[in-house]
């Protein structure tokens, strides 16, 4: 099928949990590969050993700047891919590798791990640890519509992806503190509880309606802030939730 987009999975210093999440679309993954995307690269799933040209690169993991292969690969990814998506907390924000500080044999010099966006321009963010199969799926479907769809579909895809692109522009730092800095301190929190639901390490509780972040549990994945309706809320897309969810469901039937 000539109409498919070319997608690759680039594995930097991540745990492969992001890829497992992609695969956790189960039957939907098979449909995506049948109809919308050719997996042209992904060491865990295919035998291709060198990064080819592709439409969309899904990058998992942060980059160890003391490892030349990693640095070369991420630069090559940017050159070869039209759209670079940082998948998961490690690629977006560093996640647990923010805590790395070297000193461990057999490569004690491996000390500095940077989110992908600190080395190359990243187009779209999918935060979370692990990122969810559903958000990865939605982004894949929208990327397909953006590149291969008709005018209306392209319009929708653009609107859908906009906040995820803005998250990429926002920066490479995230943790539970963002709820304090950019929501509560900004007078925006209304106590919905989304942040607590989103946190993958149960670092957030609600005390009298407002989030409390246990900072000695937080792993810096960025899920809470991305999930918060007061980080972004794009009426033009979310109001159409019924139709969009139906479209995505339909695409994967």
């Amino acid at each position: 099928m000539a109409d498919k987009i070319k997608v690759g999975h680039v594995h930097m210093s991540g745990c492969t949990g992001c890829l497992v999440s992609l695969a956790d679309n189960y039957g939907g993954l098979l449909t995506i590969l049948d109809r919308y995307a050719d997996l042209v690269y992904g060491l865990t799933l295919a035998d291709v050993r060198h990064i080819p040209k592709m439409d969309v690169a899904l990058v998992e993991g942060s980059v160890c700047i003391q490892d030349k292969i990693s640095v070369d690969e991420i630069k090559e990814t940017r050159e070869k891919a039209a759209v670079v998506v940082a998948v998961g907390g490690c690629a977006c924000y560093g996640n647990i590798t923010r805590f790395s500080r070297g000193g461990q044999p057999n490569q004690p010099q491996h000390e500095s791990f940077l989110p992908v966006g600190d080395l190359i321009k990243v187009d779209v963010y999918i935060p979370g640890c692990a990122p969810t199969p559903q958000l990865i799926r939605n982004v894949c479907v929208m990327a397909y519509l953006l590149l291969k769809g008709n005018k209306d579909q392209q319009e929708l895809a653009k609107k859908y992806l906009t906040p995820l692109m803005q998250l990429a522009e926002r920066g490479t730092e995230a943790c539970g503190c963002d709820l304090m800095y950019d929501v509560i301190n900004q007078g925006l929190c209304m106590g919905c509880g989304s942040c607590a639901a989103a946190c993958p390490v149960r670092a957030i509780t609600h005390e009298y309606g407002k989030p409390n972040v246990n900072r000695e549990m937080c792993i810096k994945c960025g899920a809470c802030y991305a999930q918060c309706p007061r980080s972004f809320f794009n009426f033009d897309v979310i109001t159409g939730f019924e139709g969009i969810l139906e479209t995505i469901d339909g695409a994967l039937k």
Partner: peptide, 11 residues
């Protein structure tokens, strides 16, 4: 293994 060492034991 040529996976960079994130050093969990040390961190």
């Amino acid at each position: 293994s040529i996976t960079p060492v994130r050093g969990v034991e040390k961190l």
